[in-house]
Design a binder for these strands. Structure first.
Lengths: 342, 342
DNA sequence: CTGTTAGCGCATTCAT
DNA sequence: ATGAATGCGCTAACAG
């Protein structure tokens, strides 16, 4: 692309100075003071020629590329985790860096290939991201340089950024408690596998702990718990139906994510029950659908954008090893109310 | 990253040959025949050292970087257009290329900055993508090299990739027609602005044309048309309610996208009407929500992944100027049925 | 058929 | 305070 770009030599020649001088001026080297006139001349020449340094040449010399690799299992194409990329993109731009994005699709061969491709391009660091927050094993190849884990942790003590699911679990539960719900709060989305295996999910366990601790603090327990093989609308639908088939019915339900909540809404609607009149619903994620539901769903938002930002901040500006928790803001909509008189 | 990598010189030395020979062997140059033994030695040495070429050095020389810029207004972070990136990523990988992704967020200053950052990195070409298919003006800066427009067209005669919305419009309508719907088919989502200004949308006009032509071929017209200021669930909801407030009600409705259809489902549900028993619904996009609805929504899918692939194919393998239409596959679910007896 | 030589554009010693 | 020379790792003329 870009046919004939001016080189540093061109600028120096036009300014009537040496390449060294031009280079120093343009890079604003501190150590040595150049005459004010030299500055003028160099800048003027650079301006006139529309000079832009050749990054390849520079990095050959400096071994820095102002490029960071963003490798993920599948996050890049996932509908609501695009926020991770946007946040990273923003923070990178603010620091004059650029993102090389790849997806491994969970395939080990792809991953190896992707990582080598990044390394060949001398990236300054890598952000290793997972779609669903979980623990993963980091390929040795990238341990040679700066790495930060995004939406994931690992056995090694690497810096990582994660949403604060546990606190969100408590927060969401407290909303219900404060509105007067007590011993008729049900939970949809228990899942042994997700809760016990950090390589599958770390959100599930954390959310559950948060919910339980808030409940315990209020001196109550869960009224009912529905297990779901996965967190999709159909599972929320089925869970809500079983909940409704029993009596008494819960006054409120906490869904482990918004898709489950969507399914719950569907079951409630079919049963002729209203949210929040008959049952209150709260959830996690702030999937776009949460705002589209009628009434809007109160949920704890996954702070994707902030997380993406944070990852590059830690990578570039430095940061402590270990996990860094990003708070999940509450999106309060109209899906909760005081329990109906019974 | 990657501390000390072996260089070509190292490989040559270990093989006891010259750098030239090593380079030629490794690059499989055709012109000149190297001895089979030289091959062996070079490969063995490269293998032993774990040699990988330094891309920066190579591109300094060849002016190729095996990197393509993916610049979009906002697509990168948009929930269901991630498919565009995934497709591009896949096709790029197959060709040993890598993607430098940026987002301009519709801001001219960001855009200029982003494009310069890409050009500084000597990208081999750029894919210029829009979130919603529309016509846009391409910055001069990137016209110096290969460009392909993704989900967009421009005044210049550049290669571009677009979904075939018009054919989808006809296809979706024909489903209804074939099931026996005739003069009671309503349309939700008319929008003068989207239809008339290609810089806002090209999908709206195309879909509408498709619907009308299919209807005309069957000798019927639209039973009703609802205008919507935007294509969000709330607008679909409102439109459906007005449709329902009149008598007779439509036997089927075509929604301009899935979010509108979602709103229509909500209104239908509240009115105690069933899909497809009372009214059939078809739509466009295949938003994830289409599969989550009960019953699943029949819709014409935006072929994001194929489009992303196509864009890099055209960019790298060459392709004709002008628009290239990608078919929108029908996702047949359970939202249509023969019209109820009336 | 193989090796020598010369840059690509830049940052950086080391002289001046 | 400025400039000439060197080399980052690689490929491509050009000799041998």
């Amino acid at each position: 692309m870009g046919q004939k770009r001016a080189t540093l030599a061109d600028v120096a020649r036009l300014a009537g100075l040496s390449k060294t001088t031009a280079s120093m001026v343009l890079n604003g080297r501190e150590g040595t003071r150049l005459s004010a006139e030299a500055h003028q001349r160099v800048f003027a020449a650079a301006e006139e020629l529309g000079y832009r340094p050749n990054v390849a040449a520079r990095s050959l010399r400096t071994r820095k590329t102002a490029t960071i690799a963003f490798v993920s299992d599948i996050v890049a194409t996932t509908r609501f985790a695009g926020g991770l990329i946007r946040g990273a993109l923003d923070a990178a731009r603010e620091r004059d860096h650029v993102l090389l994005i790849t997806e491994t699709q969970g395939d080990a061969a792809f991953e190896r290939y992707a990582i080598e491709a990044m390394l060949d391009r001398q990236v300054d660091g890598v952000i290793y991201a997972a779609m669903a927050s979980r623990r993963l094993t980091v390929p040795d190849a990238i341990l040679g340089g700066p790495v930060v884990l995004l939406n994931a942790t690992s056995g090694e003590d690497l810096p990582s950024v994660l949403p604060d699911d546990e606190r969100a679990g408590a927060a969401v539960t407290e909303i219900l408690l404060r509105q007067g719900h007590h011993d008729h709060i049900a939970l949809i989305g228990r899942n042994e596998l997700k809760e016990s295996d950090p390589e599958v999910s770390i959100a599930a366990g954390a959310r559950l702990r948060g919910v339980r601790s808030a409940l315990a603090a209020a001196g109550v327990g869960l009224f009912a718990e529905c297990f779901c093989v996965d967190w999709l609308p159909e599972h929320g639908y089925a869970a809500m139906r079983t909940l409704l088939s029993r009596s008494p019915r819960p006054s409120a339900v906490i869904c482990m994510n918004d898709r489950l909540a969507f399914g719950a809404y569907q079951a409630l609607g079919e049963a002729g029950l209203s949210v929040p009149g008959d049952v209150s619903v709260v959830s996690f994620d702030d999937d776009p659908i949460a705002a589209w539901l009628r009434p809007g769903l109160t949920t704890a938002a996954l702070p994707h954008e902030r997380m993406g930002r944070r990852a590059v901040e830690i990578l570039l500006d430095g940061g402590a090893a270990g996990p860094s928790l990003v708070p999940m803001p509450l999106r309060r909509r109209r899906s909760t109310a005081v329990p109906a008189a019974r």
